[in-house]
Write a protein that binds this DNA or RNA. Structure first.
Length: 822
DNA sequence: GCGGATCAC
DNA sequence: TATGGTGATCCGC
């Protein structure tokens, strides 16, 4: 039922995006066939259309390439991938954070609404803001005719001849936007504006404080009884504004809304005015998140006469989807439990997620993926077809995960001395990090965000390598000076500054490749044995210096390594005053999340884990130890076959591939056979790096002096590690309170048929997944042994050998689509 | 490092 | 008549 509804929504969404509109019969406007025909008539034969066709062809080609690649994936590759992906998913699950209340506020048809507000003649007419070439937005009246944002005005006119196209007044929108932001700032001084009409808030802290507030502090006055429809305080409903859309007079009805008196309603909050009339029009908002958001929307409407929609969820990705759910003039909340999140995600079309656009949707559709559930089901395949960045991103979506912390900004900084001094400070931080890593780079990039949230990056590459504060600052200062001069005579009003180093020498690259923390994450601790060392030992047919090893690696592997490097470059050697976490930049956000995951994973602090295989609690062990335990559990019944499998791949010199595929069985062998004391050193260094990634986050968000009180020693990895653990344990203690725990019912694994000693559905599901894989691999290995015993001998391993070789060989000219999402 | 592709507003 | 402008990221070359 819900499913059907969602899919219909999706269809409507698609139609809407295509310029079609599902119009209610009998209403004024056009039906979708008519709209479609008019748009096609106006489009066909144009240069624009030709280009659209060309682009479509390219996408189709990419899809064809992808399908070809898919056809060549072996079952075994898929199973290996499944294990790897599930391991990652398990880590993500463990680090799921439901403790934040994130709100996404989105003004309804913003530009059009402002124009209607300020010009009564427009109120009962279909209008759009933009030009004959392009429309920025339209009111809901015009949308009935298929007139929407990103439609050329001249086509819109054909759809709706009476359409009034108003040229945009950005200054006015900015002013209104400022009014809205002033309200938002009261709930989260660090809210993140995405654009003039959209912002994210983290109201977690506000909620905490609000619990003690007296009613009067939560009371607001409405001057007109019916212009502001707001649910009764305390009303319990996820979806409180189901039909509120139709009562938004400004946007929906031809009749104009009641005019609201001038003045700031909150100023009326004085005792003299508490006459009956006003009391009748007063409203007290509760202390829940839902009430807070109602209050925010109420205040926005009172102040601007404009309505806003909002979404409330545990992370930005979900909040954004939510704000769209009851648009316009509505709100929707996903409660902070895993079950609530997963229920919401279940049938959610991936296209609804910010970051999944037309092309990605089409590519995934070709794989049979439309909903988040399907995205989850195909996770192993996706990890083989898409870049690591991409499939990590997909997995986050499929699990309903997203960013929980918004960017923090320092208060405005406009004095040049301050700016130079901050820049120097950042250079010092950067130099310290670089020197710790023994890195030298040649490109210095500064990143500036001004008070209007505009971000600029300016880079300069110099001939010689840099590593000291003085050297870096000399370059950074010039970049900053240029920007200050460009703004002159006005001061540069900054909210953010960052300094980044890149273009490292090859030796530096190599060093870092050996200590890749992403590799560490992917492969469990297998990455501890650096690829160079392992290859040196195993591959005796060629004499390769460690430094050149990256050249010898397969294309696929190399590309991955490079990606890993480039991933690490920025966060590791960037010192920035604000986290660049924006949901409109999903990959960036993901990177952040992965880093924080690294931190917790690699921290050597001990916790209690429950093994998803045996379900025994592993008390007081590190994550590495826990991973080892899981591996041991997985390998338990078939260790001899593991070494068989390992030998077959090692014998053909394909260890570098194994490095990425990380079949668990091989990993064990690496540990037994290959880890040396040198690798132990790597382990330590890996930890330092990952902790630094976290410290960078913390530094980044707390660099403004007044905000760093909660982190006593910014540069001390140990304190940060403790911080991480503290957060983690807080989460864990909350876990049992969520409704994901099924009580009083035994869970029996459908694969191994054994009753499982857990009531945690998440763990149980992980167990089933693992069990499933294990069973299949077991079966496969039995076959391997059998075939190996046959006269034709090592047919299986030979077969595998040739397959792998073919893959490796193909790697060199692997079609672009294989390694990338876009 | 640059340009193309993708995505968002 | 006529299908934006900008900024960000990822990726391949």
């Amino acid at each position: 039922m819900d499913n059907t509804k969602e899919k219909n929504n999706y269809k409507d969404d698609l139609l809407l995006r295509m310029g079609l509109n599902d119009n209610k019969a009998g209403m004024e406007g056009l039906d979708k066939e008519k709209i479609n025909k008019i748009i096609m008539d106006a489009t066909k034969g144009s240069r624009f259309y030709g280009n659209e066709l060309k682009k479509e062809k390219q996408v189709n080609q990419r899809i064809a390439n992808m399908m070809q690649q898919k056809a060549q994936i072996t079952n075994q590759q898929l199973r290996k991938a499944q294990l790897q992906v599930d391991r990652f998913a398990m880590e993500l699950e463990r680090n799921r954070n439901l403790n934040n209340t994130i709100v996404h506020v989105d003004m309804d048809a913003f530009y059009a609404a402002v124009e209607m507000r300020d010009n009564p003649e427009l109120r009962d007419k279909p209008i759009a803001v933009g030009s004959m070439s392009m429309l920025a937005t339209s009111n809901y009246h015009a949308r009935r005719f298929g007139v929407r944002a990103a439609l050329p005005g001249f086509i819109a006119k054909r759809l709706c001849p009476q359409l009034i196209i108003v040229p945009p007044n950005f200054d006015k929108y900015r002013a209104v936007s400022k009014e809205v932001k002033e309200i938002l700032a009261e709930y989260d001084p660090n809210f993140m504006a995405v654009s003039l009409d959209e912002a994210y808030l983290n109201i977690t802290q506000h909620l905490e404080e609000r619990q003690d507030w007296p009613e009067d502090k939560r009371r607001y006055f409405s001057k007109t009884g019916n212009s502001v429809k707001i649910g009764e305080p305390g009303e319990e409903a996820d979806k409180l504004n189901e039909d509120e859309g139709s009562i938004s007079p400004l946007l929906f009805e031809d009749s104009p809304p009641d005019l609201q008196p001038e003045g700031n309603p909150s100023l009326l909050n004085s005792k003299e005015q508490s006459n009956l009339q006003i009391l009748q029009n007063s409203v007290v908002f509760g202390t829940s998140a839902e009430e807070v958001v109602k209050e925010i929307r109420f205040r926005i409407e009172q102040k601007t006469t404009l309505t806003a929609s909002a979404g409330i969820a545990p992370n930005t990705m979900l909040a954004k989807v939510c704000s769209d759910k009851n648009k316009p003039n509505g709100q929707y909340q996903i409660l902070p439990s895993r079950k609530a999140v997963m229920d919401f995600i279940k049938d959610l079309p991936i296209r609804k997620v910010s970051g999944i656009g037309k092309v990605t949707e089409k590519m995934l559709m070709a794989l049979g993926i439309v909903t988040c559930t399907e995205l989850y089901q195909q996770r192993a395949l996706l990890s083989l077809l898409f870049s690591e960045t991409s499939w990590h991103y997909f997995l986050h979506i499929a699990l309903g995960l997203g960013s929980t912390d918004l960017a923090r900004t320092f208060s405005e900084m406009f004095r040049t001395e301050e700016q130079y001094s901050l820049c120097q400070e950042l250079c010092t931080e950067l130099a310290r990090d670089l020197q710790k890593e023994g890195l030298k780079g040649r490109t210095v990039t500064i990143k500036l965000k001004n008070v209007n949230f505009e971000v600029k990056t300016r880079a300069s590459t110099v001939p010689s390598t840099l590593s000291t504060t003085e050297e870096i600052f000399a370059v950074a200062k010039e970049l900053l000076r240029a920007e200050i001069n460009a703004a002159s005579p006005h001061p540069l009003r900054l909210r953010l500054m960052g300094v980044r180093m890149s273009t490292f020498s090859n030796e530096d690259d190599k060093k870092h490749q050996q200590r890749s923390i992403i590799g560490f994450l992917q492969a469990g601790h297998q990455a501890l044995s650096s690829p160079g060392c392992v290859l040196d030992k195993t591959d005796k047919t060629e004499f390769v210096k460690p430094l050149e090893m990256s050249l010898k690696k397969s294309f696929f592997d190399k590309k991955r390594s490079e990606r890993i490097l480039s991933h690490q470059d920025a966060p590791r050697c960037e010192t920035v005053d604000q986290q660049a976490v924006q949901t409109s930049q999903p990959f960036q956000a993901l990177k952040k999340m992965t880093e924080s995951l690294e931190t917790s994973k690699n921290s050597n602090n001990c916790q209690t884990f429950t093994c998803p295989v045996c379900f025994r609690e592993q008390e007081g062990i590190s994550l590495e130890a826990f991973n080892e335990h899981v591996d041991a559990c997985l390998d338990e019944p078939s260790t001899s076959e593991n070494s068989y499998s390992h030998a077959s791949s090692a014998a053909i010199g394909q260890k570098e591939d194994a490095h990425h595929s990380i079949p668990l069985c091989e990993k064990q062998d690496y540990e037994d056979a290959e880890i040396t004391s040198a690798d132990g050193v790597d382990l330590l260094e890996t930890e330092v790096i990952s902790l630094k990634a976290a410290s960078m986050d913390t530094l980044g968000s707390n660099h403004s002096k007044e905000e760093c009180s909660d982190i006593p020693n910014q540069s001390c990895p140990v304190s940060l590690a403790n911080e991480t653990v503290r957060i983690l344990s807080k989460q864990e203690s909350i876990q049992p309170c969520t409704d994901e725990v099924v009580t009083g019912r035994a869970l029996v694994c459908p694969v191994c048929n054994l009753e499982q000693k857990t009531s945690d559905l998440t763990l149980f599901n992980v167990h089933v997944d693992i069990c499933l894989n294990k069973g299949i691999i077991q079966e496969l290995r039995n076959n391997e042994v059998n075939s190996a015993n046959q006269p034709k001998g090592s047919s299986r391993s030979t077969g595998e050998h040739t397959i792998m070789k073919r893959n490796a060989a193909r790697g060199g000219d692997r079609p672009a689509v294989l390694a990338r999402l876009a």
